[in-house]
Amino acid sequence: MSGAPAPHTAPAGPVGPVAWPSALQPKVAEALSHYPNRRSAVLPLLWIAQREWGWLPPEVLRLVARTVELPDAEVFGVATFYTMFNLKPVGKYHLQVCMTLSCSLMGADRLFQHLSGRLGIGHGETTPDGRFTLRRVECLAACGGGPCLQVNEEKFHENLDEAAVDRLLERLP
């Protein structure tokens, strides 16, 4: 199992027009270069933005729209279609517990309730200290290792039980 996941940068929530930080510009250019039209880069750019800002506030969505030369509304429609784009701020560690059948058969519901109790938050909520967001998600493609959990974008943690998940939380910086 991989080590401590890399944290998101703290949710900043820029207001007013934003621009790509210069450090990201090569990444943006690279993403655009992969496709014959700009529009195709919309998901990669949303990812780059989300990794930078932790979530996708309206101004950031506008930035992406400008970059790919699409109407703002269209990018909004795309961003909200997919469940992994955060249109609200999330905690430093985004705990995503798979709840679909295979994991559920192996105890995902218990695991989720354990986490919920321990952190004092429910589905989609963030701890007051901004450290954890808890979310139920659908099948992660780790069914043979259920119950499982993904923290941020890192590799899945599999075969979890209450004790294992406690150890995992304690290891997080």
């Binding site: 309206p58 109407p71 909004f76 429609g77 279609f81």
Partner: peptide
């Protein structure tokens, strides 16, 4: 709005049974 007006002011939000037609934000 998109194909005839060239405006793209409306967009669906989210998906499935939660799909809701609205505007940017």
């Amino acid at each position: 709005c998109d194909e005839i007006m060239g405006e793209d002011a409306l967009t669906p939000h989210r998906r499935g049974v939660r799909t809701e037609i609205s505007s940017f934000d």
